[in-house]
Design a protein around this nucleic acid. Sequence first.
DNA 1: AAGGTAATAT
DNA 2: GATATTACCT
Length: 326
Amino acid sequence: MGEEVRITDYDVGGGGGGEDDDQVLEWEVGLPNVDDLTPLSQSLISAELLSAFNISPEPYRSMIDVNRASHNTLSNMRGALENKSLTKFNSFKSFSVDDDKEDAMVVEGEETADLTRDGSDMRKLRRVDSSGDGGGAGEEAESALLADDSSARTSKRPRLVWTPQLHKRFVDVVAHLGVKNAVPKTIMQLMNVEGLTRENVASHLQKYRLYLKRMQQGLSTHGSSSSDHIFASTPIPHNLQESGGGNNGRRYAPAPVTYHAQMVHMPYPSPQIVPNSAGNGDGGAYHHGFESNSYPYNMNMQQRDWSGNKFASVSAYQHRMTPNDK
DNA sequence: AAGGTAATAT
DNA sequence: GATATTACCT
């Protein structure tokens, strides 16, 4: 092991604002000591393992490479933060919710071979086309957001599973927006979950609204039908009120962005109205005892297309900063 | 294009 | 039968 490098010697960005530097310093708290890090000169995998699994060794990387990569990362992060208005809410980045667990989606049986896709999958033909456009413009169908060319093409999105954590995030966003502004697109953007589509959110929103409606009405007659699984398990929507309908000079709470990566909690206005009581008016505070948010999940989003790709692990995509652009 | 709702698929 | 997707209308 020859050289010992001190990462801290590297001046970040050089011309960056002091603000960023502060944040970076904050991040550095808790990071492993330089002495604990593996030297660049040392391979992470032993030669035996390399040969045993037929892996070609990583090319040697110098400090210059590290600096360049670091610079790129910072540039990307700055770029991502340029997305102005949303960032204040998006203080949690895509994936990884407050509880630090992985936030993603689960796919059910991705067995679907390409068989169904080619000939038989055009099960539904659009029937009424009388409205307006005669010539449909060919659209580039799907997301090009995958930098990896290999996985961008044949895509049937895997069926999204709304895990409790994902749902919690959804509820948080909806509660924050208020009923008025809670529209699928906005929700999707604020949730900032990679791979989540507007359709996904719209569908879930539909169910969620129905659930809320049912909660307000049938409370006396029915306890809870077994359908309320996820909905009932999430804490509380609390406010259904609007926030920032557009006329008030202020928007939702500023929420000073802390980068402590763990608990970024939402500034709820005031917990008052619980969507349980129908007519309300009486202060019948009623707590349902569901606070449980610890289920066994593995959140994983299988990429739409694995053709030829050896193993597109999720982590390869977690670094994407602006997932929801289309 | 995006929201909302009913139908349909898994 | 619950839940997510898709069709279809606005």
